[in-house]
């Protein structure tokens, strides 16, 4: 289950963060997303260690923790997409697929002429679309 998705701007500022837990504990997911920026930073700043991934937007698994997984995705404009899932058995292809859709939704949202670049995404339709993508994650329909 995806518990959280986030869009983080190129200055590491949160642009969108939505948690999908029932409990009122979004703050801990803020923390997870924020800390996972460390990993993205490290990968971006040390490209030689991940040479083949230079042109790859999908950053793969960021955190190999026991209890949840954090996946990252970095666009050309240095906007980061982060997904936190409690599924411990996630296929890379599923994650990739998810981010591809998420990216498309993001692009549509920021193409809105009323959206101010660099500001938080407040669009409700974006939220709805993200929820749909999250719900369909790993269900097989994403393929």
């Amino acid at each position: 289950m995806i518990v959280c998705v986030a869009v983080v701007g190129h200055q590491n500022n949160p642009l969108y963060l939505q948690s999908f837990t029932e409990a009122d504990d979004a703050l801990k997911l803020h923390h997870v997303v924020h800390c996972s920026l460390d990993v993205i930073d490290e990968r971006v700043n040390n490209p030689k260690r991940n040479a083949p991934a230079l042109n790859e937007t999908f950053l793969g698994l960021l955190y190999p923790t026991e209890n949840y997984k954090v996946y990252g995705y970095l666009t050309n404009t240095k906007v980061k997409f982060i997904m936190v899932t409690t599924d411990l058995d996630v296929k890379d292809a599923d994650a990739r697929n998810f981010f591809r859709k998420f990216h498309a939704a993001y692009v549509d949202a920021v193409s809105n002429p009323f959206h101010v670049p660099g500001k938080k995404i407040a669009s409700r339709s974006f939220g709805a679309r993200v929820s749909t993508i999250v719900k369909s994650f790993g269900s097989g329909t994403t393929a």
Partner: peptide
């Protein structure tokens, strides 16, 4: 948040 993130997701 840090303790919560670690402990609340740890079975």
């Amino acid at each position: 948040p840090v303790n919560s993130a670690s402990l609340s997701m740890l079975p």
